[in-house]
Amino acid sequence: MELLIGFAILACIYIILASSLNILIGYTGIFSMAQAAVFGVGAYAAALLETKLTWGFIPSLIGAIVIAGVISAIMAFPSLGVSGDYFIVASFGLQMLIHTLFMNLDGLTNGPAGVQRIPRPEFFGYQLNSDIEYLILTILLTAIVLWFLVGISKTGFGRVLRAIKEDETVVQSLGKSAKRSKITVTVLSGCVAAVAGSIYANYVTYISPASFTIHESIFIAQLIILGGLGSWRGATIGTIILLGLPEVLKFLPISETYAAPLRQVFFGLLIIGFMILRPQGIFGTNMAKKIKIKDSNITAELGEGEKA
């Protein structure tokens, strides 16, 4: 039972993270590899506000959202001028940069040793010590975030974002600033990731730079790719499958020495299999098809593929 509760809390955290990346990749077509860094900024901000300034859970959460939003805006300015594959590398760079800051701003982040003894949230003198209580809080926050994001996607702003993904020039010709919308959505994504960071920091009660590496960014991207880009259900189901997979794979009867690397091999094969058989993910309709990076090459290759 406790195992399921722990799993559910982590799943909620990653559903929020996947959703935060989903509005970038799935809706706007910006492929970011720096989501773990933004997640980390949120987690560090919340943890430091709680441990150093002894703020409560809610004020720290709001503080983390604001800080992550500001940092996302700073990150967005240089990188959004470029598009497609360049942005993948640029965001890789941002990820490295922020990780280095976590490691080396010793006075603030305590370097590689990380921030210890982050308190569990307390409301009116009652501390949420048990995991089940924390799960309720987490589900509540997750629901608010998802409700908020779905709401936004239905507004005019959401339509502008989807239009940017389809064709940026059209958006500009209609007098909307694509760049401003892209920065807004990046900030929004950062704020949402900060919520996940805050929940994570308070759940694990210990954070260190090792939790916010490039591998984590890749993992978050995999969640929505598997589930389906631009789909809310997809982000959720993708998260549950990828988080649960290592647990399930433990049941395979392989000797321990080989089991761990083989688990990773299986994981890689699953992703390859999905990319070949169902690249739009489990729930993505044909959204993924519409992301256009270097379109001419694809059509040329496809033309040939059909002939063969």
């Binding site: 799993f7 499958i241 049941f251 489990i282």
Partner: peptide, 18 residues
């Protein structure tokens, strides 16, 4: 996929271990 998830749920429910 749903049956896969169901399967996953069942497995994590009856926790055995390596």
């Amino acid at each position: 996929m749903f049956s896969f998830i169901l399967f996953l749920g069942i497995l994590s429910g009856c926790s055995s271990s390596s």
